[in-house]
Simulated scan of single mutants.
Amino acid sequence: MHVAKMIDHSLLRPELTTADIHRGCDIAARRAVASVCVRPSDAGLARTALAGTGVLVGSVAGFPHGDTLTAVKAAETRALVDAGADEIDMVLHIGRLRDGDAAYVRDDIAAVVAAAQGRTVKVILENAYLADEQKVAACRLAEEAGAHFVKTSTGFAPGGATLADIQLMRASVSPHIEIKAAGGVRTLDTLLTLHEAGATRFGATATEAILDELAARERGERPTQAPAATSGGY
């Protein structure tokens, strides 16, 4: 199991400076993670910083509330593609989903999928605001709209990834649709437990702590203390 290649190193907090983004990209490159997930304005910077490293550049559309106009989400996605983004994590319209407006939610996602021009699209459900039947509906609508992943959370809501949600999401989509866990994934044990339940990608700010813990275990050392929680953006 290549744990590093399941991690999207998150660089989404609003207070991050350009220097912070450069440091985050350096961590991502040194640790050979799957991707960085950066704010839209940082996509071009990350593309340059990570050139030749094999680390993908991800960014976000309609983040973090999901309530921007569909046309704006699509335009944002096209701009991210132009800036060199490989993956798009979009937030569905949470309120319309809670309304039961399936057509709106499906079309909103489909517009981003079309604008992504074949690039990977991950649909953030923001499960903290949803009942189980709404989570199931969101998963099915994301698949119908052509998305590649369904994702638990932005990291900015009251709750993040849970084992129950990963199990429910895995049962609600076809095998080719992947699951991303985000929000509260701060330890190796959490990552491994959610992976066993079906998650294949993880949004994390505690990337180095997780991978240091993995290396320590592989050396046969005793587990270290879990890192302190960080607020916002996974």
Rank of each mutant, 00 (worst) to 15 (best):
P227H: 13
D212Q: 15
I7A: 06
A215V: 05
R13Q: 13
A181F: 07
A43F: 04
D107R: 13
G183S: 11
T187N: 10
A145W: 09
K180A: 07
A131Q: 15
S231E: 15
S35H: 03
A145R: 09
F63L: 09
V55L: 00
A209W: 08
A19T: 14
L125G: 09
T48M: 12
A103G: 13
H148D: 15
F149C: 02
R222H: 15
C139W: 14
C25Y: 11
S35G: 03
R78H: 10
T18R: 15
L194Q: 11
M169P: 10
R39F: 00
A229F: 11
E218L: 08
I210C: 14
V185F: 08
L97M: 03
A128T: 08
A204G: 04
V57E: 00
T207S: 08
A51Q: 07
E208Y: 07
V38S: 02
D212S: 15
S35F: 00
G58A: 10
K73D: 10
T48N: 14
R39E: 02
E213P: 05
G183I: 02
V38T: 03
S174E: 06
A182W: 00
D86A: 11
R201M: 02
T224Y: 09
I124L: 09
L80G: 02
C25M: 12
C139Q: 15
M1S: 04
V3E: 05
R23I: 09
